[in-house]
Amino acid sequence: MAASWSARMKEQLVISGALGYLGLWIGLPVFQLATAGLIYEGRNPALVPYAVVGTATSTLVFTMLYNVGQTLDTERLRGTLIGLFLAPAPRIAWLTGFALAGAFETSLAAASTVGFGMLVFGVRFDVDWPALLVSLGLLLLGLWGLGFVFSAIGLWSRRSNDVSNLVSPVMLLLGSVYYPITALPLWLRLPARALPLSYGVQALVEASLHHRPLSTLTAKIIPLAGFAVLLPLAGIAAFRWVEHGARRRGDLDLY
């Protein structure tokens, strides 16, 4: 796990350069938040702190899609996937190592988003730490599993980047990133409630901005806990399905 984490970190830094790496991971969420801030400022400033927490949380989704979700297909394109499958190391260890490298980038992006929100929009937090940590932990587990599901889908489709680019705006629209779920038209609220992100963002907003304790967040925490159990199982199942298919057909590196 440590070796794959280290390899992925070095690779990212060498490809991007330190400055490019920072620009990429800090720039994206900051400019997204700036857009939201400029839309809300002056008319509904109460949504700016919401957007800060939502944008910071959305960085987890981008890591889930563009990092974890594209891992297998990226390795295939480089011709190293077969090597990884044949290596005498637990699959879950190197997959998690890659995911942890993504977690570092996510932390950087989330921290810059929160810092930007505090400095530029004057957002202040009133955190209930147990509620924040439980909500974040459950959301992370759910997204970790979902990332492996998308990784399998990306490898199966051979177009993981296109899959990520297709899914990410859906997540932005339905994931309650910039607005509460009640801002959506009624017919869009149903699919929004099928996503762990919408529960996660709402719970994190309540816990970090309004000091709401866990006992008042059960309506968000219970579905999040369900996702935290089911999605990792789905991720493991999807990964096994891909590996089984690859071993049976032997076609992983044929195109």
Binding site: A36, I39, Y40, P169, V170, L173, Y178, L184
Partner: peptide, 22 residues
């Protein structure tokens, strides 16, 4: 993905402005 992406971004911006009251 190509036609859907901009449509979804339009929808995100539209809901954001709707929430802002503009």
């Amino acid at each position: 993905r190509w036609p859907l992406g901009p449509l979804l971004i339009f929808a995100v911006w539209r809901v954001m402005y709707g929430a802002s009251g503009r």
